[in-house]
C-alpha cells in the first residue's frame, strides 16, 4: 500500500512538474521581488493565478480572502503571505472522504463530458482500478456516435479484463444503457461504468439524450449508488466551468475527473470549479497507462503545485 502511495505521489509530482514550474516560478518571483505587501504585490499575485487558468472569480475570491487574513493577522512578510495562499487553496480543494463511497457500494457510474477530453480512456482506467480492488465491473459503451468509439473502449475493457456491453454505431445510446443496467442487475455486478459520447454542452438535443440516459438509470436501478462524473480536460480554460454547469443541469454531477495533467497545463481550472460550483475533483489523469488515474488529494495536489524547492529537472526540462 505504501509503495503504491509513493508511486502515486511521484507520478503526480512528475505529472505536475510543469504545473509547479509555471505557477511557482511566478510566485517565487513575486514573493522575492516584493518586500512589502502592497497593492502591486496583490496585483502580481492575481495575474499569476489567472495565468494558471484559475479564473477571474476564483482568483478574486482567493485574493480577497488573503487580504483579509493578512489584515487580521497583521502580517508584514511576503513569505507569510505565501503560506496563507497555499493553505487557502488547499482548504478550498479538500475532498470529503465519503466522496469515494461508491467504490465500495453497488453503483452506476456515468462518465460524461465534451468531445476529446478523455472519457473513454478514463472509463478504461477506472475499470482497471476498480477491478484491481476486487470489484466486479461491467462497462457499457453508450458512445454509439463517434466512429470506432466502441472498438476503442473494447480495447480498454480487454486491458482491464472486464466485460463490456455495447451497441452498434448509430444505435440509441439510451437502449444501450437500458441493456447494461439489466445485465448489471442480472449478473450481480458491483460497479457499472457507462461511457457516453462526447457532446458539447450547448447542443440541446445531445444534452436531452443524456438526460434520458440519466433518467433510465434512475428508473431502472433506483437502489444503486449513482455517480455522474464529468471529465474535464486539464488544458481547458474558462469554458470548463460552463461545461460543468451545463452538464450539471441535465445530470447531477457528483465529481470531476481532470485529465491530461501531465502536460504543461496548470490545472488551475480545478480550483475555479471547486470554488464556483462546489463539485469536487475526484480523480486526475496524469499519464497514458491504465494506472495513471488517481484519486484526487488536495494536500498532495497543492503541495505539488506549490513546491518551491529548486529542482534540477527544471533546467533539464528547459526546452
Amino acid at each position: 500500500m505504501s509503495e503504491e502511495k509513493k508511486g502515486f505521489f511521484a507520478r503526480l509530482k512528475a505529472g505536475l512538474t510543469k504545473t509547479r514550474e509555471n505557477i511557482v516560478r511566478g510566485i517565487d518571483s513575486v514573493f522575492s521581488g516584493f518586500s512589502t505587501i502592497d497593492e502591486d504585490f496583490y496585483e502580481e499575485l492575481e495575474e499569476i493565478l489567472i495565468m494558471g487558468d484559475i479564473g477571474i472569480n476564483a482568483t478574486t475570491e482567493i485574493i480577497e480572502r488573503l487580504k483579509e487574513q493578512v489584515k487580521e493577522q497583521h502580517l508584514k512578510e511576503t513569505s507569510e503571505c505565501r503560506q496563507l495562499l497555499i493553505d487557502g487553496i488547499r482548504e478550498q480543494m479538500k475532498v470529503d472522504e465519503t466522496a469515494y463511497d461508491f467504490e465500495k457500494e453497488q453503483s452506476v457510474i456515468m462518465v460524461i463530458g465534451v468531445n476529446g477530453v478523455g472519457k473513454t480512456t478514463s472509463v478504461g482506467k477506472l475499470a482497471g482500478k476498480l477491478k484491481g480492488e476486487g470489484r466486479k465491473v461491467l462497462i457499457a459503451a453508450a458512445d454509439t456516435f463517434r466512429a470506432a468509439a466502441g472498438d476503442q473502449l473494447a480495447e480498454w475493457a480487454r486491458r482491464a479484463d472486464v466485460p463490456m456491453i455495447g451497441g452498434a454505431e448509430g444505435a440509441d445510446p439510451a437502449s444501450v444503457v437500458y441493456d447494461a443496467v439489466s445485465a448489471a442487475k442480472a449478473r450481480g455486478v458491483d460497479v457499472l461504468l457507462i461511457d457516453t459520447a462526447g457532446r458539447l454542452h450547448n447542443k440541446k438535443n445531445l444534452m436531452e439524450e443524456l438526460r434520458k440516459m440519466n433518467r433510465i438509470i434512475d428508473r431502472e436501478f433506483p437502489d444503486a449508488h449513482r455517480e455522474n462524473l464529468i471529465v474535464l480536460d486539464g488544458t481547458t480554460g474558462q469554458n470548463a466551468l460552463v461545461q460543468a454547469r451545463e452538464f450539471g443541469e441535465v445530470a447531477d454531477l457528483t465529481g470531476i475527473v481532470l485529465t491530461k495533467m501531465d502536460g504543461t497545463a496548470k490545472g488551475g481550472i480545478a480550483v475555479a470549479i471547486q470554488s464556483e460550483l462546489k463539485i469536487p475533483v475526484k480523480y486526475i489523469g496524469v499519464g497514458e497507462t491504465i494506472e495513471d488515474l488517481q484519486k484526487f488529494n488536495s494536500d498532495e495536489f497543492v503541495n505539488a503545485l506549490f513546491d518551491v524547492r529548486p529542482e534540477t529537472e527544471n533546467e533539464s526540462r528547459e526546452i
Partner: peptide, 15 residues
C-alpha cells in the same frame, strides 16, 4: 487545437 484550450495554448503552439 481545441478552441477551448486555456492559458496553456501558447506553450503547446510554441513547442
Amino acid at each position: 487545437v481545441d478552441a477551448m484550450t486555456g492559458q496553456d495554448a501558447v506553450n503547446v503552439a510554441k513547442e
